[in-house]
């Protein structure tokens, strides 16, 4: 009985793990309007989320976020809620009309979200 229950628990976790692979892929942002390389890349947070949801910039570019959502928000690195993927992107909270910014000095893909509304996500792609 004990072995069966433990095996049952392992099987449940295995199913959950397989499900996570597929659902995690399906939960990735689908094609969204993107802002390609610009001298002054800006992201605006509204009640609907970050816009544009994806920006592509060159190494050494400063990206600025402006909060027009009407509520306090944050810019935090993934993964929610630990934010450990890229700690410089944990920029803290900002109120209505306020801005946050970060210079991206290394190429890569940097996902972020609003910690206070984790469904609001975005990504910064930094090219060489």
């Amino acid at each position: 009985m004990n072995t069966k229950v433990i095996l049952g628990g392992v099987a449940v976790l295995a199913v959950i793990g397989v499900g996570a692979v597929f659902l995690g892929r399906s939960s990735q942002p689908t094609s969204q309007p993107t802002q390609s390389e610009s001298s002054t890349p800006a992201v605006v947070l509204t009640a609907s989320g970050f816009a544009p949801q994806s920006v592509t910039v060159a190494v050494g570019t400063k990206v600025t976020w402006t909060n027009n959502s009407g509520a306090t928000a944050t810019v935090n690195s993934v993964n929610h809620p630990t934010h450990l993927a890229y700690s410089p992107l944990n920029l803290g909270s900002f109120g209505g009309g306020e801005t946050l910014s970060l210079v991206f000095d290394r190429p890569g893909t940097y996902k972020y979200h609003n910690h206070l509304n984790a469904s609001q996500t975005g990504v910064v792609v930094v090219d060489q």
Binding site: S93, L116, A118
Partner: peptide, 23 residues
Amino acid sequence: LAGGIILGQNISWWGVSWQQLTN
């Protein structure tokens, strides 16, 4: 965790995310 996986939803932690020390 299981509910989040089945529904494809994040866990928002909404009720325990806003208590920032400064505010």
